[in-house]
């Protein structure tokens, strides 16, 4: 069952990611944005398979919700009709595919080599290890477990958390300032 779901989500994610970038039927940014939503939802499905339930929910809320609405809003603000006409240059397409294909080849071969040398180590072979907390209970990526990891851990992530909140404030002020009519 897990295997079938993994295959579905993986294929869906990669296919719709390809359609975001090189869609043969449409040059329209709106189509790309819609396929990006499909990719995000498939990735959150992968997160569920990896027991990261909280992150799966956040993925859908933030990416498929907030980020996509922002993208569609900006696409509506800009004039996409003019951009939809332009053709991709065949040379850049071929060169891009060659470069990225080479990169992926290096990546794949390095993973394969790692798994060959790792041999019988169950860790490296990818047998999932159960996460056990102090009380001996099995922990998954639930909201509770992630919250504990964030806040109650010795030398935990409280400072990064606060820094991120400042970052969000700065981003908000920056976005408002940049969108004002006259830039000084």
């Amino acid at each position: 069952m897990e295997t079938i779901l993994f295959n579905i989500f993986a294929v869906l994610a990669v296919l719709s990611a390809l359609l975001v970038v090189v869609n043969p039927l449409s040059r329209n940014p709106v189509t790309s944005a819609m396929f990006l939503v499909t990719t995000m939802i498939s990735v959150s499905g992968l997160f569920v398979l990896l027991n990261a339930y909280f992150l799966a929910a956040v993925q859908i809320l933030v990416y498929a919700g907030a980020v996509m609405v922002l993208f569609l809003f900006v696409i509506m603000l800009l004039d996409v009709q003019e951009t939809a006409r332009r053709k991709l240059r065949i040379v850049s397409l071929v060169m891009g595919f060659v470069a990225v294909g080479a990169l992926f080849g290096v990546y794949k071969s390095s993973i394969d080599a790692t798994y060959e040398t790792a041999g019988q180590d169950s860790h490296a072979l990818g047998q999932a290890e159960e996460i056990v907390d102090a009380d001996g209970d099995v922990v998954v990526g639930s909201t509770q477990a992630l919250g504990k990891e964030l806040f109650s851990h010795e030398g935990g992530f409280i400072l990064p958390f606060e820094i991120v909140s400042i970052l969000l404030l700065v981003a908000m002020i920056g976005a408002i300032l940049l969108s004002k009519k006259e830039l000084r």
């Binding site: 090189v22 992968l46 990225v100």
Partner: peptide, 22 residues
């Protein structure tokens, strides 16, 4: 296994890079 997930991740990253280039 882990390598399968890493493959998906690598494929997604490559496609993203392709988009930035092309």
């Amino acid at each position: 296994t882990l390598s399968h997930y890493l493959m998906v991740s690598g494929a997604l990253f490559s496609i993203g890079l392709l988009g930035v280039i092309v």
